[in-house]
Design a protein around this nucleic acid. Sequence first.
DNA 1: CGCGACGTTGATTTGCCTCAACGATTGTGG
DNA 2: CCACAATCGTTGAGGCAAATCAACGTCGCG
Lengths: 194, 194
Amino acid sequence: MYTMSVPFFQHIKKFVSIPDEDLPGILSHFQVLKVKKKQNLLENGMVCRTNYFVVKGCLRMFFINDKGTEQTIQFAIENWWISDYLAFLNQKESNFCIQAVETSEVLAIDFQTQEKLLAQYPAMEKYFRCVYQKAFAASQLRVKYMYDFSKEDLYLHFEKWFPEFVQRIPQYLVASYLGFTPEYLSEIRKKRIS
Amino acid sequence: MYTMSVPFFQHIKKFVSIPDEDLPGILSHFQVLKVKKKQNLLENGMVCRTNYFVVKGCLRMFFINDKGTEQTIQFAIENWWISDYLAFLNQKESNFCIQAVETSEVLAIDFQTQEKLLAQYPAMEKYFRCVYQKAFAASQLRVKYMYDFSKEDLYLHFEKWFPEFVQRIPQYLVASYLGFTPEYLSEIRKKRIS
DNA sequence: CGCGACGTTGATTTGCCTCAACGATTGTGG
DNA sequence: CCACAATCGTTGAGGCAAATCAACGTCGCG
């Protein structure tokens, strides 16, 4: 329980300086979870009560479109936060599912507890400000890529920047994240080999 | 100068409670700008030094793709913040331009000044945490729409939720924001009338 | 071993883009 | 206040990127 929270503390310290004696108090606000591959942390239609930090493994957030296919809109690997923030902020039902891509270890904090944590530790307020700022920055860049690149370029770019991730994750999930079909991904990979 | 900052104070008070006597001190960190239609606040290739809050009017952020056409990735109307946050956070060159869609009044704060402001007023740390959290939430939803909807549905949805905005803004900018061509937008509108 | 999940391949279809030309509207200087 | 240009919106023909659908190979796992 304590050793597995080390990556979280390191992540906090990348953004704010915080006395070591505060760390246990901070950690006490979280729940440690082990989730098995394919297990869901958030179900479509349920109130999104929880914000998750991935200590080890990989989660994804997806929804199911009218045609019944899953559309992944976000992955979270080590040191990333994930939640449906619109539903989380308003404590409303979510249209998304959050699912473990691999068996994972996560820290979970529900909305009210997070509010308490932030009120109690101003440094955590700053930490989350930095985390969300970075997340939004990444999101801006992503939207740019979606507009700038063809689907083929999207994949080549993704493969170039996250080669280990492409190994780790089944191809149909990569396709789902980049917004195209597994069949087309197959075609792209065939081209790239020759 | 003072009266035009009222909307900003109101916006702050929607997220945090803050004593009125702090407001002048906070405001002193900002520069008040009037920008004319089509005037640029950030130029492609320049270091992104500034974060902008729109008091009145409308800004947009765009880039120019390989084919030389402008791709709008964000609008900011009254009470929205806008910047290229990746470039802003790292104080690096931006690939974007920020331009006034309408003649506008904005509050501007550069990176170092914002850091000072946040250090001095913990309430502002919370304020920006909320602002970025909301921005990221909106961005998640936007990515969902981009995956979920056809271009036609994107427009109909946009028109339904922001009818006044569609009136206010030239159509080719709406098309550029939604990721398709003015010609295709024309086709969509023709269909909708019949 | 046999089943289900995953990846590949090819034929066909389609949503949307490209390009070019033409109205409509706006704004601006004489 | 008008003339002219520039900007913006529309229309249509043709083309391409990527989806759809169906079938088949392959691998891991119970």
